[in-house]
Amino acid sequence: MIKNILNDKPTKLFVIFAAFFVANALIAECIGGKIFSLEKLFGAQPLSFSLLGESGLAISLTCGVLLWPLEFVMTDIINEYYGPKAVRRISYIAVALISYAFLMFYMAMHVPAADFWYGTGVQDGVPDMSKAFNAVFGQGMWIILGSLTAFLVSQIVDVTVFHKIKKVTGEKKMWLRATGSTVISQLVDSFIVLFIAFYLGKGWSIQKVLAICMVNYAYKFTVAVLLTPVIYLIHNRINKYLGKETAEKMQLAAMGKEINAD
Rank of each mutant, 00 (worst) to 15 (best):
residue 244 K to T: 15
residue 226 L to T: 07
residue 20 F to K: 05
residue 82 Y to C: 10
residue 226 L to R: 08
residue 29 E to Q: 04
residue 65 V to Q: 05
residue 149 T to H: 02
residue 180 G to M: 06
residue 173 K to V: 05
residue 48 S to M: 10
residue 218 A to S: 15
residue 71 E to Y: 12
residue 193 V to M: 12
residue 204 W to I: 08
residue 166 K to Y: 03
residue 82 Y to E: 09
residue 21 F to E: 00
residue 58 A to C: 10
residue 123 Q to G: 12
residue 30 C to W: 00
residue 136 V to F: 10
residue 187 L to Q: 06
residue 36 F to E: 04
residue 227 L to W: 08
residue 253 A to P: 01
residue 229 P to R: 11
residue 49 F to C: 07
residue 102 F to I: 14
residue 25 A to I: 04
residue 108 A to Q: 06
residue 105 F to V: 07
residue 137 F to Q: 04
residue 12 K to Q: 15
residue 81 Y to P: 12
residue 245 E to Q: 14
residue 35 I to Y: 10
residue 255 M to F: 00
residue 46 P to E: 08
residue 255 M to Y: 01
residue 201 G to R: 11
residue 40 K to I: 00
residue 63 C to I: 06
residue 250 M to K: 02
residue 258 E to C: 00
residue 86 A to H: 05
residue 31 I to R: 01
residue 11 T to V: 15
residue 152 L to Y: 08
residue 97 L to D: 06
residue 17 F to S: 04
residue 96 A to F: 14
residue 257 K to N: 03
residue 8 D to Q: 09
residue 135 A to V: 03
residue 235 H to Y: 13
residue 114 A to Y: 09
residue 167 K to G: 10
residue 198 F to K: 13
residue 151 F to A: 00
residue 177 R to K: 11
residue 119 G to D: 06
residue 42 F to W: 11
residue 156 I to Y: 10
residue 165 I to F: 10
residue 246 T to C: 13
residue 18 A to Y: 01
residue 252 L to D: 00
residue 179 T to A: 07
residue 175 W to C: 06
residue 105 F to A: 08
residue 12 K to S: 14
residue 94 A to F: 12
residue 108 A to P: 01
residue 15 V to C: 11
residue 16 I to W: 09
residue 154 S to P: 01
